[in-house]
Each structure stands twice: as C-alpha cells, then as structure tokens.
Design a protein around this nucleic acid. Structure first.
Lengths: 315, 315
DNA sequence: TTAGTTGATGCTATCGGTAACATTTTACTC
DNA sequence: GAGTAAAATGTTACCGATAGCATCAACTAA
C-alpha cells in the first residue's frame, strides 16, 4: 500500500507537504499541489484511515443502537440502516450495530439511537460522544424524524376538504412523543375548523381497530373519516368498516401513517403519510458526522410529511 | 483513556510486559501477570483497537456486500445483518454495508458477499482479502448456507411417509446454485423410491403458482404433494388448490422452503424448511474472522435443515 | 569456577499519519 | 540592498500499540 512517504518521495517534497495538500490545501503553492496530486494519482494513493484515526484519537466507528425489540418483518430498521450506511460509507466511517447490552463494548465516535423510552434518557444524556436520536423526543436530545404533527394536520385537512364532516382520531395507546405530536396535529386542524375532537387509543394492532369499529358501528354516522396514527390501525379500521358493509371512500374515509409493509396487503390502499426512512437515515448520518467533525451542534431535523394518496379518501 | 503505559506504570513494569500479558501470556511469569491484570482492572483498561490495527496493518472492518437489489420487505437481509453484527461486535470488528458501486471505497480485512451471480465470480476471485459467500455456489468460493439438497430431500421423504403417492416439484426458474440443489434433493428422494420426477419452474411469485394450479387442475390426481422451492410458490399453490376446492392436507400436500414473512399470511401455515438466518449470519462472521485471524482456510459450512411443520401435510 | 543456554523482561524502532515548532523562502518597505 | 514580516516548507515528536533484538539473571554442564 502506498503511503504519504511514497507520495512525498515521488513528488520530491516532505511528507508534511503531502499531508497539507490533503488537509490544508490553501497553505500550499499551486505548483507543489499539482506535483503532489500527480504523484498521488500515479501511485493510486489512498490515505490510511486507521493512522489518521490514531492521531485524531477517533475510531471512524458509529454505533447504531436499537433499543426496541427488532421486528425483522418490518422493513423499517433495514431501511434505516441502508440510509445510514450510505452516508457512512461515503465518509469512510463504519457501523456497529449494538443493543443496550453490548453498548459499551469498544469505542466509537458517535451514536445514533432509536426506539428510546423515557427510562433511557438518563444514560443517553451522560454519553460523552455526539448523539443523534432517530425518532422525536421531548427531552432536548437532537433527533431526526418526520414532522408528525404536520402529518396528521395535513391528512385531517385533506379529509375535510374531501367533504367528510366528522373526523375521528384513532391513536396508539402509548406515551411516546410521536404519538402526542400526531394527536396534536389532528386536534389543531379540527379546532381550527371549530369542530370537537374525538380521540380513541389502542395498542398498535389492526385487529383492535377492527373490533372497535364492529362494536361501535352504530355511532359512526356516514361521512366520517378516521384519522389513524398508524397504517396498522388504519387497516383494521378499513376492515371493520368493510365488514359492517360501509363503503370506502364514498361513505367513510380512512387515513394512516407510516407507509409500512402491511399497507401493500390492504385494499384499497390507505391514504397515508409516506416516510422515506432511507433518506431520513442518510440525513441522520450526515448530521451526526457534522457534529463529530465540525463540532457542530445542529439541533433536530424534521422531514416534511409527504401525503401518499391511496383509495381511502374520496376522489 | 488509559493506555498500555498507564497500566505499565501502575504495575511497575515496562509496557512491553503489559502487551505480552495480553497477547502472549505464556511468556510472562504468573506473578507479573497478576500484577498487570490487577492494574488493568483497576484502571479499567481497554486496548485501543485502532493502534493495534495500525501495527497489524489491519482495519477491523468487514464489508458486507449485497449484490441483489434489496427487497426491504423481506426480513432476510435484516436478519443476516443482525447475525453478522452480533459476531463482529463481540470481536470489536465493525461492519460496512457496501454495494457493487462503492465496493472499493476504503480498506477492510475481509468480505461477506451475498446474492452472487455468475458474472460476479471473476472479480470476487481476484479479491486479496478473505471472503466468504452467504448462499451456496459452485465456483469453489467458501460459503455458508442451509443444506438445500437435504432440505427438499427430507420434505419429499416426509410427504411420502404421510402417504401422498405423487410428488410434483415446483421450482424457481433461475440458474442459481441453491435451486439446483433443491431440485436435486427432490429428485434423489423420488428416484430412491423408483418414482418418476415431475418438475415445473416459475419465477418466484405466488400468483404464478396459483395460476399453474388453476390451469392444470385436472392433471392433479388426489393424494399429490407439491414440493415447492420457496414459501412464496407454496403459498400460490396452496391458494390455487383452495380455489379449485381441493382439500389441504387431506387430498393434497404442499411444502415450501425458507420461512419468509409471507408464511405468516398463509392459512394453513406451510410445512417448510426453517432457516435461522440470524444464526447463519453469526456463523458466517465467525468463519470469516477465523480466516482473517488464524489464516484458516475453513471451507464451506452447511446448516442442517430444520423442518417446520405447518398444516399442509397430513397428521 | 566459568562459559553457554535458556527464559523473562526491557529498549527501540515502527506502523502512517498530524500538530507544533523550526527553518527557509518570498515579498515588501525604506 | 538590508531589514522584516508573512508565507511556504521542513523537522521532530507523538498517537498507542507490537515485533525484534538487547539485556540480564538463573541454571546447566564441563
């Protein structure tokens, strides 16, 4: 493998000059720069990241910590990893996939953490390396997420625009930040129209949505739209309505959130918020590397929700 | 961060002795060893892998190269990565997820490659670092895979034992090694029983299996079992039979291969070969690290197939 | 007793870079 | 053209580990 010294010899300069050409090119004359570039090119020189890491006391490793149990049937985490990996590869960083148990094994330059619960805040705040969360939180930890509030706000708005005159929110029965935000988006839209919010919450299983509809069918006047906090719940609602003979989208509207795999199974397809997890993961990586390399305190990043029209709202 | 020198000072020895305690403990007296261990423990010493990597001219990085288009809705690759990551973390290695395009960016100590086609053999054979393939091949490249042949052999055997008297093989129309092996397993079992093999091949989509059954229904005498090369195809066959009013498992048997997510959707569940991709990935990692660290030429590893009983064979 | 052998431990250079300081060159002023 | 500041380039030490040789003590054999 060619090293700095090889290049230096070829270009008849000291290795420091070569190093400067790479890291502080403005401090080297154009003439020498060209000499060095030529030599580098000729020898097919690639800097040794390990040596660099040693002097910088860095590791070129990012740990991705998934705190939830991983449901491998959901493409969510796979997409996240693909996105992160894309960015890291580009910058020659590599990835360690860790869980809470093996979190402390080995060093790294920064962390991406996802699936955080309240009890995790404490130890996460104690970390001494840059951290970015994937998924919103309200503990002051920087994060990357879809703008959840805006998502349900827009879906509610769309439902109203399509002429549904009653909006019911079907939420996830959990105390996580994203759920509060989704509720908030719905509530804001409804209140702006001087309507009364109606919220129900269930564990995130489609059959719970289905049962809810079946049991309470008589309460649901025609021309109602259900704004659901997840595609799972939306699919359940959809099935429930179908069972009771309700017509979607003519009589009832349904919206979801997420763009999970299950949506492919639904019929008609749910109108939902599509999240590009890959892109978000990629941004998440960029953000973290920025923090690491430029000591930048970026703050959080919200992705604007993209509404993905299915067949569960009119027109 | 504590270093060798810190430990050496604490233990009143030279840093070389500390290094020896770690790497060649047999060359140090027990007394010094204990002194050093105590000091290491007291200072919470962890070797700096980067420095180690620099002298060893290693990188502590393994590249995982997925050559297929990744279908993120399949948990396959997620499981693979989880398995690999588990092993690598344990050995302080980290992972780079690369595609053919960014394959050459940056250095590494070894490769895990999956989704290989024939055209890839050439460049893979030229790699100078240890390689292990995930998925069988017939080009002499070491691999980790389920014993595909044994899988269909056993499923066929089971179907016969359950009393089905005609076995039809539904294969995947591709020239990949695993498919040949699965066919071979079926053929061997059938020939041992002096029966005549009947093989059909389709692209790996359930609807193709379904259509095949519908169109050729009259050919399929009762008491036939379909040995399918994938759960996807098996689900299609199952649906086709159901549509035509055939009874599973009483009149017809079906077996699959893989244990993919879709099986959860099938009813009744397919009798299939369950592959623990996580475990296989983990072994794959161990194998590669062995090759790297011990210069070991391990050869391939076959996992014995585990038959997972569903409701598509009698009893 | 003394030379030779063996085993335990220490010393030094090295891996491939970078920062800090040292030195040389350049440019500009009077 | 000497004096000086600024810019360009070189020298040295160091990051944290390991290999190889040097040293030294203990033990064996003549």
């Amino acid at each position: 493998m060619t090293t700095l010294v090889d290049v230096a010899k070829k270009a008849n300069v000291s290795k420091m000059t070569v190093s400067r050409v790479i890291n502080h090119p403005d401090k080297v004359t154009d003439e020498l720069k060209r000499l060095v570039y030529d030599a580098m090119h000729e020898l097919d020189y690639h800097p040794n990241m390990i040596a660099k890491a040693l002097v910088n006391k860095s590791t070129m490793i990012i740990k991705l910590c998934i705190l939830e149990d991983i449901d491998t049937t959901e493409p969510y985490y796979m997409n996240l990893m693909l996105g992160i990996a894309k960015t890291l590869d580009l910058h020659q960083y590599s990835l360690q996939l860790v869980t809470r148990r093996n979190f402390d094994i080995g060093n790294c330059d920064g962390y991406i953490i996802t699936g955080m619960r309240q009890q995790d805040v404490e130890w996460i705040k104690k970390l001494t390396k840059p951290v970015i969360m994937f998924g919103e939180n309200r503990y002051g930890l920087d994060y990357v997420d879809t703008n959840n509030k805006m998502g349900t706000y827009l879906l509610s708005q769309l439902a109203l625009k399509k002429g549904y005159d009653r909006l019911i929110y079907i939420g996830i029965d959990s105390k996580e930040s994203f759920e509060y935000s989704r509720e908030a988006g719905y509530i804001q839209q409804v209140q702006e129209k001087r309507m009364v919010p109606e919220l129900y919450r269930f564990d995130n299983h489609s059959h719970l949505g289905e049962e809810f509809i079946e049991k309470n069918w008589d309460n649901f006047t025609k021309n109602t739209a259900f704004i659901c906090a997840s595609d799972r719940l939306a699919i359940g609602i959809e099935r429930g309505i179908a069972r009771r003979g309700g017509k979607i989208p003519e009589e009832y509207g349904v919206t979801g959130f997420d763009g999970v795999f299950l949506n492919q199974v639904a019929s008609p397809k749910i109108t939902t918020v599509k999240q590009s997890i890959i892109e978000m993961g990629s941004t998440c990586g960029e953000n973290l590397l920025d923090k690491i390399e430029n000591n930048d305190t970026q703050g959080s990043i919200l992705f604007e929700p993209k509404i993905c029209l299915g067949g569960t709202l009119r027109e």
